[in-house]
Simulated scan of single mutants.
Amino acid sequence: MIEYFNSLGLEQPFLRLLLFTLISIIIGIVIRFVFFKALFILNKKDDRKFVKLLERRFTGSIFLFIPMLIMHNMIPGFELNENLTEWLLLISESLIIASFTIVAVRLVYFLQDVLNQKFNTDRADNIKERQVITQIIFIRKIVIFLIVMIGLCLFLLQFDGVRKYGATFLTSAGVAGIIIGLAAQKTIGNLLAGLQIAFTQPIKIGDAVLVENEWGWIEEINLTYVVVRIWDQRRLVLPITYFTEQTFQNWTRNSADIIGSVFLYTDYTVPIEELRKEFESILGSTDLWNKNSQVLQITDCTEKAMQIRLLMSAKDSPTAWDLRCLVREKMLVFIQEKYPNALPKTRLEMNQSSDSNA
C-alpha cells in the first residue's frame, strides 16, 4: 500500500493518512449500500418490512465501524512517528469500541422491533400482547445497560493507568461493593422491583390504573420509575417500588371490560318502568355499550328523593366514561321533557291553625 501511494507521488505520511481515511469512508458506504441492496433483492416483497426496520436502525452506525476497523489495521504502515501512531491507534480503538457498542445497542432495538411486529396491541382484547411487550421493553433496557457498561469498561481498559491498577480495583471490589450497596439501597430496590413487575406483572404497558386519586394509563415502565399518563394528558411519575409496596387499582389486570355507573335522584312519582325502557333504548342506540351488562335499580330512598343507579358495561375505561356521560345526559333530558314534575323537590305543607279558623 505504501509503495502504491509513493508511485502516486504521495510521499507525505499525513497526505497518505488523509487519503486513506477518505477511501475507508467510501468503502464503508459501498459495503453498507451493497449489504442492504442484497437483502432487498434476496427477500420477497412481503418480508421486506424487516429489512426496512434493519436499515432504519442501522443508518449511520455501520458507517463508523467499518472505516475505523480498516484504519486501525492500516495505521502502523503509514510510517508516522511512534507517539502519533500510538495516539491514532488509541483513537481508532476507542472509536471501534464506541461503534461496536452502538451497533450492539441498535441490534437490540431491531430485535425489539421484530418482536413488536409479531404482537398486535391495536385490537381490543390485547392483554397477552401487552404482557409480552412489557417484558420485552424491560429486558431491552437491562441488556442495553449491560452493553453500555461493557463498552465503557473496554474503553477504560485501553489506558495503562486503568490496567495497572486493575488488580487493586479488583482487590477492593468487595469493600467498594458493600459501600455502594449501602449507599444505593433504594436504587437497587428499584431495580429488583422492576424485575418483579416485569415478570409478575401487576401492571403492564397500556393498563388503566387509579393511583394517587388520579386515573390514567401506564405509559412507560423504566428501570427505576413508572410514567402514568393522566386522562387530561398530564404525566404522573412514580418510583417503581410504588407498585410493589402501595395499594392501587388496575382496571385492566385481566380484561379491559369495565362496568360504569350513573346515579339519578328523582321524586317518588317518577315511573320506574318508563325510565328502564328509556335506558334500554339509549344503550341499544349506541356502539359504546358492549351488550354485556344493563341494570337499573333503586338503591336508596331519603325523605326528599330516591336514588336510581344505572349500570352499563363497555369494552374499556375510556369508552365506559363516554357511555356514562351519554346515558346521564339523555336520561336527564328524558325526565325533563316527559316527567318534569318528577325532578327532586322539597315539599312544604302548610295547615291553618285552629285560632285562625276561629
Score class of each variant (00 low, 15 high):
R234C: 09
F263G: 00
Q249F: 10
V228I: 13
I240N: 00
V270M: 13
Y265K: 03
E274H: 03
V270D: 09
E274G: 05
G260L: 05
N222G: 12
R253F: 15
T241M: 10
V226E: 01
L236A: 08
E220W: 07
L223Q: 07
E219I: 10
I230K: 15
D267G: 14
E245H: 14
I258M: 05
Q233R: 09
Y225V: 07
W251M: 11
N250Y: 08
E245Y: 07
Y265N: 02
R253A: 15
R253S: 15
S255M: 12
N250K: 08
S261G: 11
V226L: 02
L264D: 00
E220H: 11
S261R: 15
Y265H: 02
F263Y: 13
R235W: 06
V237A: 12
E274D: 07
T266V: 13
D267A: 09
Q249S: 08
T241S: 12
T247S: 14
I258W: 03
I221C: 03
S261E: 13
T266S: 07
E245A: 12
I221S: 03
Y242L: 00
T247V: 05
S261V: 09
Y242R: 05
I230W: 12
L238F: 06
E245P: 02
I259T: 10
Y265V: 00
D257N: 08
Q246H: 14
F248A: 01
L236S: 07
Y242S: 04
R234T: 03
Q233W: 11
L264Y: 02
P271S: 03
R253Y: 15
L223I: 06
V226P: 01
L264C: 02
L264T: 01
I240M: 09
D232H: 07
N222Q: 13
Q246A: 15
